[in-house]
Each structure stands twice: as C-alpha cells, then as structure tokens.
C-alpha cells in the first residue's frame, strides 16, 4: 500500500477542478459539522441537569421518578448494556457461523440465496421486528414466565436485528482472506477445517471483531423495537424474565411529555448513549489496528 498525499489526484489548476474541490470540501465539512452541532446541542441541553442534580446523582439515586426528584440513570445504563451484550453474545456466533457456511461450506446454488436472504433480513425496518415481538414473542414468553415483556424478549429481538449486520460484515471480512495463503494451505494439504482454523480465522480476526463491535453499536442505538418488547420498568433485572428499560426507550417514552429538569436529564441520557457509541466505534478502530500488526 502507498499513502496518498494531498492533493490526491491531480495538480490541475483548471476552474472546474477547483470548483469541484470547493464543493466536495463543503460536502465533507457539512457532514463533520453536523456531528459537532449535535454534540454541542446535547451538551448545551444537558448542562442544567449536569449542574443540578449533578452527574453523581445519576449513579447514586435509588429510583427514577423525575417528577419526584429522583434521577437514577444507572438501571437504564445497565438495561442498555445487558440487552446489547446479550444480543452480541448470541448474534456473533450465529452471524459468523452463517458467514463461514455461506463462504466455505455451502454449495454455490445455496450460498447465493442464503446471502440474499440475510441481506433482505437487514432491510426489515426495526419497528416491524418490534411489532412481531409484541404480538408473537412477548405472549409466548408470558406463557412460560410472566409478564413476557422482558430483558429476554429484548435480547431476542436485538439478536435478530443485528444478525444480518454481523453476518454480512463477517462475510466481507472472510472474502478478503489472502489467496496466496489459501493456496499455500492447500499445498500443505490442510483440510477445509484446518485452513479455516489455522489460516483464515486468525487473519480475519480483526474484521470479525469489528463486525461484532459495529453490530453492538447498532443494538445500543435501537429504540422502537426495544421499547415495544422490554417492558420499560426502571430496575436492575434479577433474571432474564424481568422487564428493563434502556436509555433509548427512556428518551422516546418521556421526551414528548418532559419539561424543565426532567427534559434536561433525558438529554444527559442521550449524551451518555453517544459516549457509549463513540467509545465502541473507537475501540473497533483500535482493535482493527492492533490486530493488523500481529
């Protein structure tokens, strides 16, 4: 690989090129500015809540009753982390398994439809998953362990939603395995499993981990489907069958009706969520870099 240096393509001084460059510069800065504006807006709106009751209270208060001056955000942070963590734990092996099957084991007539199906799954709007969860999954869990709307339901729905992301990213990463290494493995007489385990998976580890982390960031931000199936009770769940509320569901449920301090605390939960996603994407980049140099 060679590094490109600005100006990347041409030293042309023609007006067209300069105009195009100005236009592209402004496109790129608009995209960047939007993020800056959103973060600034979140900080601005959160400021009243961060000065009073102050960020400590979000982690030490016993309950969430914003109209009665109790602002515990930690059970919702836990709800978000538990549902996302559970979904990634389920979706990662399933997604990578599907990817390995499509890429390595499936005959061509099966691999292509299989891939198309997963792409189709990725295109289903999240509210449809939520609706299905509400009318099918929640009553099913309710028969087993009431009330049905629970952490488990949330994990199942999130798993289905991030499975295609995980699988497609994993397939893309498996497809990039170095052909020379594959030929070398074949020459050494490795079987399919040996090649996978000794050659392909180690060289794709960074890509597979990134797939998991990006899927996790999608699960973190998911709102509607989770709101519909999780039960939204603010508590630390003692089992998989207890209802939980996530940070996103909290904002969606309460922002239309919140005013003053209550509203500001909801923006704090938005800020918290943004920090979580940024750190996830950051660690995805870091993991990718660290593993590339192994």
């Amino acid at each position: 690989m060679y590094t490109t240096w600005w100006p990347p393509i041409t030293l042309s001084h023609s007006r067209r090129d300069q105009l195009l460059r100005a236009l592209l510069w402004s496109c790129a800065s608009v995209a960047g500015l939007m993020l800056v504006c959103i973060v600034a807006f979140l900080i601005l709106e959160s400021a009243p809540a961060l000065s009073h009751p102050g960020w400590r209270r979000f982690f030490t208060d016993a309950a969430w009753h914003p109209t009665e001056d109790a602002y515990a955000l930690w059970p919702m942070l836990a709800g978000t982390l538990l549902s996302t963590g559970g979904a990634v734990l389920l979706a990662a092996p399933l997604g990578i398994g599907t990817a390995v099957f499509c890429q390595w084991y499936a005959p061509a007539w099966l691999a292509v439809p299989c891939r198309r199906l997963i792409e189709l799954l990725a295109g289903i709007p999240s509210v449809v998953f939520g609706f299905w969860g509400l009318v099918a999954l929640v009553p099913l869990i309710n028969q087993w362990q009431p009330p049905g709307a629970s952490l488990l339901a949330g994990i199942c729905i999130l798993t289905m939603m991030i499975l295609p992301t995980t699988s497609l990213l994993a397939q893309a990463s498996l497809a990039q395995a170095d052909p020379d290494a594959l030929r070398a493995a074949a020459a050494l007489g490795f079987g399919r499993w040996g090649t996978l385990r000794r050659v392909v998976l180690p060289s794709c580890a960074a890509g597979l981990l990134t797939a998991g982390l990006l899927a996790a960031s999608r699960a973190l931000g998911e709102t509607m489907a989770v709101l519909m199936v999780c039960g939204n009770v603010v508590q630390l769940p003692s089992s998989l069958f207890d209802p939980v509320r996530t940070l996103t569901a909290n904002m969606a449920l309460e922002i239309p009706y919140a005013a003053g301090r209550h509203r500001s605390v909801l923006f704090v939960s938005g800020l918290l969520l943004l920090l979580l996603v940024i750190s996830l994407v950051g660690s995805a980049t870091w993991v990718r870099r660290a593993l590339r140099h192994v």
């Binding site: 309950a63 009330p147 709307a149 039960g231 939204n232």
Partner: peptide
C-alpha cells in the same frame, strides 16, 4: 404516587 406503583410493563 408513582413510586408506590409496582409495574410489570410501562
């Protein structure tokens, strides 16, 4: 008060 309510679903 809302703190007294023991809800299963919100």
């Amino acid at each position: 008060t809302n703190a007294e309510i023991r809800a299963d679903v919100i």
